[in-house]
Design a protein around this nucleic acid. Structure first.
Lengths: 152, 152
DNA sequence: TATTGTTATACTCTATAACTATA
DNA sequence: TATAGTTATAGAGTATAACAATA
């Protein structure tokens, strides 16, 4: 039997620490992106729309987002002048999300900044540890992603 | 300049992978706790109340939770028969949260189960890697916790 | 008939403000 | 006057259902 209290068992569990560290990373990312008035979710949409012209429906699949949520995301990106909707000539039901020049600039600035923030976040680890961490996280994600293990 | 697309840069960032892995851990934890009809948040409250009789206000501080949120948590724990409120004799404003026998049983069952789930979650890592991961997560949390760096 | 996008609506989670009772 | 707890309410964030336009 354990000599630790229930609260200690919870606080020291790797799974719970992982969850809390993930929250810390999220909070940091969201805070840093405020200077461009966007959330992490919105940056992800901008990132996918940066290279190719994609319909809202495609962005929903890529970002794992509901189509009604996507409507409000694209509304906001239009309001900020980062993107605009363009009806597809091929299929007029589709609204392609096209980044503006400012939108492209925001993606590039934000990604450069996030790389700096990440370096600061990981500064307590040496380069070898950072590689190990990245590798372990990737393996854990693949091993535990319900989407991958869902009956194919 | 980078040869990777913006979307690739986002997806491969350690910070973002960490955030998503944390979400995966949270989803797994919440799913596994459903068999006792509780959330991770509620298990944390049960865990702290397991050893000592604490007032709702104390539990709020320990769990980083608002007092209005705590009211609904304790309401639910009472409804499930896992805890009950007892007015403090010392300070009759305070409601001590006292676990029932069933509540104690739930804490012990749930913690034992979560240890199994965690082992499965980390199964892709060997024991040395698991220790390294735990150590790195703890260091990253301390280094990046806003609560610790907030002007003392 | 199915799909894309939109709107209106509801639901969950959490926090703010106002209140009661105790100190 | 301040604190512990409660209630009512509001605010994000997201999802469901019904609808319009198009295929």
């Amino acid at each position: 039997m354990s000599t630790r209290t229930a609260a200690q068992q919870i606080s020291s569990a790797t799974g719970y620490m992982l969850l809390r560290l993930g929250d810390l990373a999220r909070e940091r990312i969201e805070r840093e992106l405020r200077r461009w008035e966007i959330s992490g979710k919105e940056l992800r949409v901008l990132g996918y729309a940066h290279e190719r012209e994609l319909a809202q429906r495609d962005l929903c699949e890529l970002c794992g987002m509901d189509r009604t949520t996507m409507v409000s995301v694209v509304d906001k990106l239009e309001r900020l002048g980062y993107a605009s909707r363009a009806r597809s000539d091929v299929d007029r039901r589709k609204h392609l999300v096209v980044l503006t020049g400012r939108g492209r600039q925001v993606v590039e600035e934000a990604l450069a900044h996030m790389a700096e923030v990440e370096a600061a976040f990981l500064a307590t680890l040496d380069p070898a540890e950072r590689r190990q961490l990245n590798d372990m996280i990737a393996r854990l994600y693949v091993a535990n992603d319900p989407a991958r293990s869902a009956s194919p």
